[in-house]
Design a protein around this nucleic acid. Structure first.
Lengths: 199, 199
DNA sequence: TTGGACATGTAACAAGTTACATGATTGT
DNA sequence: ACAATCATGTAACTTGTTACATGTCCAA
């Protein structure tokens, strides 16, 4: 119910930007909250139906030729109030995230260091690409919506993305150096074999 | 099946450190991979049963008085091979994480900026606390396991935690300044009312 | 004597993804 | 002619958490 509430509130938030259909919402996500929140059709359509029943949103149906009817949802007063109530509740801390990269690195002693190096190299490339996306997105936003009252908040979320990306890039480079050093040692004294000087 | 595989592999990894019972594994997680990976009893016990059937691990039962029998699991050769195979597979990129803080900030225009400020202040306190935990953990590890071949890998995962925490702290401070500025403006020109100069 | 740690496990629930069903329209 | 996109929705499946059941030992 806790998480479910979040799905509802995320959708209310998106509908506060503009009235939309379920399809519109799904299309908007990658261009808005997609870097830190995702919802699939399998979540969106049932949630819209539930929230319509409970009066948080309302549906306007438009006939179209050929295509299915378009169902456009918009916030009701109750929906906007619910959104604002939720925004005021302190953020639930620490949803532990599953980070497969760190998991593999943590067990890196089980394989030659070159393996871990490859993982970090891939992560570095990915982080650099992501940083560029954030930078481009920021420019686009500033250009297209310079006076939107939501802009400062959208920039704030982008800024954390940039900080995180830069931190990850720095860590990747530092880690590649560490692993490079280990790989050099490893070539002389392979893991899982006893070293000459057992001491 | 993909994710399930990860649960199995995480458990194989932990058992590569030492043979353990399900209870031991659960206790070890907060002290090892807990900052980036979690498994509950509801996952662990069934997974151990499955992996015993499929020959990846083996169980030794020890009778105890009073307490339930202790089931200690250890990797088989097949289990270690499976772990190493998995470690060699490139990391599956981009499991989109749900970040409730960013979600609330993204919709911050719906409430007074002071609300968003409080969220960020809480995040700052949390990030500073977390950074300290990482720093202390690193010192403890260096002190207690100076010669463990796994140490460098454990330090690598801690280092990303430190980089991330510092980035988050910097972003919190920067964001508090932005929101503070907005709050000052907001007191003169409240949101949702028209400003005097519509221009 | 009461509560917490020890210890194993299951069942019920919650949440989320993917595949499927349907069918028109548009571009190659 | 074929694939992609538009558009809505459901069903099946996977994954994960929480609560419960059971019972001992130990410390305050």
């Amino acid at each position: 119910m806790q998480q479910r509430a979040n799905t509802n509130n995320a959708l209310l938030g998106l509908l506060s930007i503009a009235p939309m259909s379920g399809y519109d919402i799904r299309q908007l996500i990658p261009k808005s909250i997609g870097h830190f929140w995702n919802e699939s059709y399998g979540q969106i359509y049932p949630a819209l139906k539930r929230m319509t029943s409970s009066g948080l949103i309302e549906k306007k149906t438009q006939r179209t030729k050929g295509k299915p009817d378009r169902h456009e949802y918009s916030l009701t007063d109750a929906g906007r109030a619910q959104l604002q109530d939720w925004l005021k509740v302190p953020v639930a801390q620490r949803s532990v995230v599953r980070n497969e990269l760190l998991l593999k690195l943590f067990f890196g002693a089980q394989v030659p260091p070159a393996i871990s190096r490859e993982h970090v190299e891939a992560a570095l490339i990915d982080a650099e690409r992501t940083l560029k996306v954030y930078t481009v997105t920021e420019k686009e936003l500033r250009r297209t919506l310079p006076n939107d009252p939501q802009l400062p908040f959208w920039l704030i979320t982008l800024s954390l993305g940039r900080h995180d990306s830069r931190a990850k890039i720095a860590w990747c480079k530092e880690t590649l150096a560490v692993l490079g050093q280990m790989a050099a040692t490893h070539r002389n004294e392979p893991v899982m074999k006893k070293t000459r000087k057992a001491k």
